[in-house]
Design a binder for these strands. Structure first.
Length: 462
RNA sequence: GGCCCCAUCAUCUAAUGGUUAGGAUUCAUGGUUUUCAUCCAUGCCAUAGGAGUUCAAAUCUCCUUGGGGUCACCA
C-alpha cells in the first residue's frame, strides 16, 4: 500500500509551498487508495506544536484535504528515538563524541582557513580511552567515508553524491540527549511505513544523511520525489516577504479552495492541455513522476483567472453559503438567483462579490460626478420621468425580461435610441456608469424601488 | 567557495530523435453588451550560448553562461 506523509515543522501556520507538497502527497495516496498521514516535526520544543497543528488542520479543512489516522508528534516519541540510539551505540554503528562546541568551531575555522570542506574529523570514532571531564557527549553515527551514494529520485532521476564530498559522522543526538532532524525523519518515515516521500527539493541534499540512518538500521528505503520549489517573481524561494504565504490569508482575500488547489496542482505538473481540474479529477489523474524538474514562479494572474472561473461556475446556492464567510447573508433575499447570476461573472474573488451585492441592493447615496455629466444632458430627465411613470402604471413585473420589454416599449414610443435611456437610468439606479445589465438590476430591486430611485436621482440632480 | 539540482514565449506548461514548436494566463486588437465585466475571435511572444553524435536535435553528449538549493548540537 502507498503511504505518503506531510511533515511540517511548527511555524504557526501552513504556507503555500507546504500546502502544495501536502496536496501532492495527498493526491498520490488517494489515487493509489493508500494513506496520507500527518506528522508534526516539533523536536525543537521551544515552539508550540499544538497551535501549529491546529493551524494546519484548519487550513486542511478549508481546502478539503484530510489526513488519515491520528497526528503524530515527534515530541512525544523520545523513547522510540532513545531506543534506536541505544541500539546503534550497542552495535557500534554510532559513538559518543566528547568534542566541545569550542573545539568544533576551532576545527571549522582551521578548515576554512585551509580552504577545506568543513567537516567533523572523526577523532572520537574509535576512541577507547577515558573521556574528558565535564563534557556531555553528543552521539554521532558512523557514515561511509568513501563511495557513491545514489538517490533514485522519482522526479530528478538518478542523483549521485560522493560520500567524501558531503558526509561526515553527523550528530544524531545532542549533548542533552535529544535527537536531531535527519535522524528522527528517517526513523519516523520508516516506522510509520511511509513508502513514498514527496517533499521540497531543498531536502535533496539531506537525503544522503537520512539514507545513512536507514542503512544503519536496516530499514527499507522509501521512494523519493523531490518537488522543485516555488519561487517569487525575483526567482528566489517564496518567503513571508512575498506577501500571502499563509494559506488562510487566501481565504480572507476571497479565493476559493478549488481555485487554489487547481492553481497549485498545475504549478509544475500538467496533464496534456488541461487547465481545469476538479478535486476528483486530480485524485484520479495526478502522478508525481511527471512533475517538472525546474522551479516554477508564483504568478498571481493565473490564480485570479482560476478563481474567477470557479466563482462563475459555482451554483448560486453554494455562493450564497460561502458569502456568509464574507459577511453577507442573502439566503433570505427573494431575488437571490437573479442577483447572483448578474454578479458572479463580474467578481474576481469572493470579497469582490460580497462588496458588489450592497452596491446593487442599497439605494445610492451619491452620484458619480463624471457619470452625471456624461449621462444627464438634453432630455435625460424627461426620459427618466416618463419611464418612472410607465413603470408605476405597469402591471406586475418580475423577470429581467419584463423590465426589458418596458424599456423597449418606451424607446419605441419616444423614438429614441437605447443609449438615451440606458446611461441616465444606470446613473439613477446605481450612481455610476458601470454595472450589471439594467433589466437585471431592476428585477432585483423590484417595481416599487425602481421609480423611487429614478425620482430621487432626478430631484437630486436638477 | 565545495557539493547537488535546474534551463521552451513575460508566466504556467506541451512536444519522450522527424510538428509551420501546441495550449493556458497576461498583454494588444476586433466582435457581442445601453456601460463595465463576462463571452467569442484574432494577434504578439520561446527552445540561454557554443561544440559534437545523427540523414534528422528543444529532445542525446560535452563545455560555457545564468539561476536555484544545501553545507548547524535548526527543522
Amino acid at each position: 500500500m502507498v503511504v505518503t506523509r506531510f511533515a511540517p515543522s511548527p511555524t504557526g501556520y501552513l504556507h503555500i509551498g507546504g500546502l502544495r507538497t501536502a496536496l501532492l502527497s495527498y493526491l498520490w495516496a488517494r489515487r493509489n487508495g493508500g494513506k496520507f498521514v500527518l506528522r508534526i516535526e516539533d523536536t525543537d520544543k521551544s515552539r508550540n506544536s499544538e497551535e501549529a497543528a491546529k493551524a494546519i488542520v484548519e487550513a486542511f479543512k478549508w481546502v478539503g484535504l484530510e489526513h488519515d489516522g491520528e497526528i503524530t508528534y515527534q515530541s512525544e516519541r523520545d523513547e522510540i528515538y532513545a531506543k534506536y540510539i541505544k541500539h546503534l551505540l550497542d552495535e557500534g554503528k554510532a559513538y559518543r563524541c566528547y568534542m566541545s562546541k569550542d573545539e568544533l568551531s576551532e576545527l571549522r575555522e582551521t578548515q576554512m582557513a585551509n580552504k577545506e570542506r568543513t567537516r567533523y574529523d572523526g577523532r572520537y570514532r574509535d576512541f577507547t580511552g577515558t573521556p574528558p571531564e565535564g563534557i556531555e557527549p553528543v552521539i554521532r553515527i558512523k557514515a561511509p567515508l568513501t563511495g557513491e551514494i545514489v538517490i533514485d529520485d522519482g522526479i530528478k532521476g538518478r542523483v549521485s553524491f560522493q560520500a567524501e564530498d558531503i558526509l561526515d559522522d553527523f550528530i544524531i543526538a545532542r549533548g542533552d540527549g535529544s535527537p536531531t532532524y535527519n535522524f528522527v525523519v528517517a526513523i519516523d518515515d520508516a516506522l510509520m511505513g511511509i513508502t513514498e516521500v514527496i517533499r521540497g527539493d531543498d531536502h535533496l541534499s539531506n537525503t544522503p544523511k537520512q539514507m545513512v540512518v536507514y542503512e544503519a538500521l536496516g530499514f527499507k528505503l522509501p521512494k523519493y520525489y523531490h518537488v522543485p520549489m516555488i519561487h517569487n517573481s525575483n526567482g528566489k524561494k517564496l518567503s513571508k516577504r512575498d506577501g500571502a504565504t499563509d494559506v488562510m490569508a487566501y481565504k480572507e482575500m476571497g479565493y476559493m479552495p478549488e481555485a487554489l488547489l487547481n492553481f497549485l496542482v498545475r504549478l509544475g505538473w500538467s496533464y496534456g492541455d488541461q487547465e481545469i481540474f476538479s478535486f476528483n479529477e486530480m485524485r484520479e489523474l495526478f502522478d508525481p513522476s511527471n512533475i517538472n524538474k525546474s522551479a516554477s514562479i508564483y504568478n498571481v494572474d493565473k490564480l485570479d483567472w482560476l478563481n474567477a472561473h470557479y466563482i462563475k461556475n459555482s451554483s448560486n446556492e453554494a455562493l450564497a453559503t460561502l458569502l456568509h464567510e464574507y459577511g453577507v447573508d442573502i439566503h433570505g433575499h427573494d431575488k437571490k438567483e437573479i442577483l447572483l447570476d448578474a454578479l458572479k461573472e463580474r467578481a474576481k474573488n469572493m470579497k469582490e462579490l460580497a462588496a458588489l451585492i450592497p452596491s446593487i441592493i442599497e439605494t445610492p447615496t451619491a452620484y458619480d460626478d463624471k457619470a452625471v455629466k456624461k449621462a444627464f444632458k438634453g432630455e435625460a430627465t424627461a426620459i427618466l420621468t416618463a419611464f418612472a411613470q410607465k413603470l408605476e402604471g405597469a402591471a406586475e413585473l418580475h423577470l429581467p425580461s419584463d423590465y426589458h420589454h418596458e424599456m423597449e416599449s418606451l424607446v419605441a414610443e419616444m423614438e429614441i435610441g437605447f443609449g438615451k435611456i440606458g446611461m441616465p437610468l444606470r446613473v439613477a439606479l446605481l450612481g455610476e456608469m458601470s454595472g450589471p445589465g439594467l433589466d437585471s438590476v431592476m428585477a432585483i430591486i423590484c417595481k416599487d424601488e425602481t421609480p423611487r430611485r429614478i425620482n430621487n436621482a432626478v430631484s437630486a440632480l436638477l
